[in-house]
Design a protein around this nucleic acid. Sequence first.
DNA 1: CCAAAAGTGTTCACGGTACACCCATGC
DNA 2: GCATGGGTGTACCGTGAACACTTTTGG
Lengths: 229, 229
Amino acid sequence: MSFTYEFERPSLTVDCVVFGVDESTLKILLIERGIEPFAGQWALPGGFVRMHEDLESAALRELSEETGVTKLYLEQLYTFGAAERDPRGRVVTIAYYALVRLADHRVRAATDARDAAWYAIDDLPPLAFDHRKIVDVARERLRGKVRYKPIGFELLPHKFTLTELQKLYEIVLERALDKRNFRKKILGMELLVALDEVEAGVSHRAARLYKFDTRRYKRLVRQGFNFEI
Amino acid sequence: MSFTYEFERPSLTVDCVVFGVDESTLKILLIERGIEPFAGQWALPGGFVRMHEDLESAALRELSEETGVTKLYLEQLYTFGAAERDPRGRVVTIAYYALVRLADHRVRAATDARDAAWYAIDDLPPLAFDHRKIVDVARERLRGKVRYKPIGFELLPHKFTLTELQKLYEIVLERALDKRNFRKKILGMELLVALDEVEAGVSHRAARLYKFDTRRYKRLVRQGFNFEI
DNA sequence: CCAAAAGTGTTCACGGTACACCCATGC
DNA sequence: GCATGGGTGTACCGTGAACACTTTTGG
């Protein structure tokens, strides 16, 4: 089977930068390519867009196929279309970035991926194509967005301590935050619900657990509230 | 001549939302389509991406061909790829938004465009495809970005009065600003150069003209300065 | 009792906001 | 001289930033 067109057409792919936080390290999910070009090299999970699927669906499908990751926050990042970015010919890729609760996801490689693994963002292997550039753009976007949308919670377990939350912001923003000011600010927003529960298995005073109140957040947004760290 | 591929490929287009400000009205540039589908309807300027040109080059080329507009600020907006957005079949479009000094541009229609004209953003005709949605996303993006990047100046003549600048922000942000506070803030950034010149042809006290100091802005940014209105 | 992290308030500086009148110019 | 917009300063308040000690728990 083949398809014939009057004009040449570029190929269309999607690629995903999947962020996760593990023990105070920001990581992204990579696959080891099983096929040429760049076979054996690490790359972003992604692949060709099918004819009848939306772009976001394509991103979700590729992620699921190649890495087993399914439930996540996904958002379009940018479209990379430099004429020479792929040695196979003209390939335009729509990049997405995603946030996952890393503990929830046992990754497993499949389809075109020989392997799948989490890499610390500050210690990435050489990446195929222009994927390094895509990662840099994604990180920059995450840094920007985390400050005015409560997307950071997508990276944490549903129940978390204030210290974990602060650490997360410190990792993403790449700077230290003052403990008292951070708590005052975040609690002042009244978006967190204090649970009747504390962390377990620590050899010091156990911290209270909180959860993010999505309902309340949506209500406040409708009233003109702006999240900001 | 024709091209044959093993797998189906979507078509790829670019579309541009070109903003201009005219007499305190925010306008965008539309073309009247000369060919099907939607012949005779208004639409965003745009067209198919060629095989060997970058996406941004394609956007600039289409703009120039269809409307005669050339020198402008251009930035990628978002990629729209819903499976059913184009009746001709699968067409993915990379949308750009652009800012121009409206007075500099005599528009003229050409190629696939029967006509080209500026329309007030609040009084648009029905648009072809999903272009209305693209316009809405672009407007939202402009509103957001104008506050923390000095892109508003791209919409004004090189020499402008403080009142013109304030009007511009009021139009884009859709709210009134306090004159004294606005001036204090904008002059305090030291990004404007007061010229030895005042506006002409007004029947009241003539306002001083200013220009934006790009050099100085870049220097300040390197030192960690953040523009913000 | 020691180590480790949890939890908690106050002060100060700065920037945002509200607000009203005189001035210069053209007709 | 009048209509029109240009241009200017101050007072208040809320938010961001700096900063250190006591409490709780497990080992």
